[in-house]
Simulated assay, not measured.
Amino acid sequence: MPRSPLQLLDGLLDEDGMESAAHRFVLGGPFGAEPAEDTAERLARFADAGGLLVETSHSYAGGKAEAAVGDWLRRNPGTLGVTTKVGHDTTGGDIPLSRDTVFEHVRAALDNLGVETIDVLLYHCDDPARSVVELADTLVALIEAGLVRRVGVSNWRAERLAALAAELGERDHIPVASYQFSLAEPDPALLEGSLHADSAVLDAVRTHRLPLLGWSSQARGYFARTGPKQHHGKPDPYDTEDNRARRLRCQELAGQLDSRPETVALAWTLHHSGVWPSIGARTTAQIDNSLQARRLTLTEEQVHWLRHGR
């Protein structure tokens, strides 16, 4: 008997093996800031293509994103798992991660999403004023209350991530890590407080065998372009000399493989076991293009060359 999407999700978060009907892509997008029919069309296409997990946040779209996803989930229960994040207000600013505040926001997220349990709940930010033990206690309490199934963090410094992983590991929980991860390494000064999965973060991920949700896996469309593009009127954090060279190498390899540069770049992320790349597709065509990356098998030499050029 086939396993349900949520059973597959549990297995894939804990194992490197893949089921033929499922894939590791996570679907993000402008939920709550677009017409409801656009959201519904993309979620349906993603689910039909073997997708397991949709990603949003309690703060996205001025607080409207979860409800937009929830409208579809209510009509299609059990079809997709959902990960959401708490810790930002509706302007994107950090808030204190007190136990009461976190529980309040999680209960609001459950109402918005129309689900009994959130599949993956992430702290959207750290609260350095609080100990890792206190923050871990809150996450475990959420699990024990049956409000969430899996927990994790986004945008924590590597040493705090490692400490949380050790603390939760002692309680038989493996946290999910969420960071920017793509072939294009961004200029950290232009990420506005968000963190890239640098070598220190990746060391913690590997040491504790954490699933990694890699947001901006396509570097905001960087590999599909031929020149720089501003993001909300600000410089593109991915438009660096190193990344321009990586984009040229993607173009070269795409020509050899009869593929597209952005597809090659996305296949690079899939080569890393335990990484779940998040795709911010705005159309079903972009979902289809992203899924083509599953059909590209890169060699170790190609993976190294794409990143380092040698």
Rank of each mutant, 00 (worst) to 15 (best):
E301Q: 15
A67K: 13
F31L: 07
D89S: 08
L212R: 08
A165G: 01
D288L: 00
E104A: 14
P261S: 11
P188Y: 07
L8I: 12
E252M: 07
E37T: 13
R307Y: 11
V106A: 11
L97Y: 09
S98N: 07
D89W: 06
L168R: 00
F223G: 01
A197M: 09
P96I: 02
E41C: 10
T84H: 05
S57H: 05
S182F: 02
G93Y: 03
E300N: 12
A129Y: 03
R149D: 00
T84P: 00
L266K: 10
A136K: 08
G11V: 05
G214R: 01
E170L: 14
E55L: 09
S182Q: 01
H196Q: 11
L306W: 06
Q286G: 03
A49P: 01
D242L: 12
R260A: 14
G193L: 12
R307G: 08
G92F: 06
P35F: 08
W276E: 06
D126K: 06
G233E: 09
L110R: 12
R310A: 14
Q286E: 14
S194M: 13
R74D: 08
V86L: 02
D137Y: 02
T226V: 11
L9K: 08
Q251T: 13
L8T: 07
G28L: 08
K64D: 14
L73W: 04
A265N: 03
G214C: 03
P228H: 05
R107T: 15
L110C: 06
S178F: 04
D10Q: 13
V151Y: 04
E300D: 15
W268V: 07
N243C: 06
N155H: 06
L202I: 02
L212G: 07
R99V: 02
R225Q: 01
A245P: 02
Y238K: 05
G63E: 07
K85R: 15
A165M: 08
S199Y: 03
H208W: 12
V205P: 11
T79C: 01
G255N: 12
D48T: 15
T91M: 09
S59C: 12
R171F: 05
A65E: 00
G81T: 07
S290W: 01
L161A: 13
R294P: 09
S290T: 03
D203T: 14
L12M: 15
M1N: 08
D236C: 03
S217T: 02
S98K: 03
E262Q: 15
S98T: 15
S278C: 14
A67I: 04
R282F: 04
Q218G: 11
L213M: 15
D239I: 00
T283L: 08
E170D: 14
V26R: 01
D288Y: 02
E301D: 15
T39F: 00
V303Y: 08
G17T: 12
D71Q: 14
L253R: 01
L73D: 00
S278D: 06
L27I: 02
L9F: 06
R247W: 05
G193C: 13
L80Y: 08
N112V: 00
C250D: 03
T101P: 00
G92R: 05
A33R: 11
T297E: 13
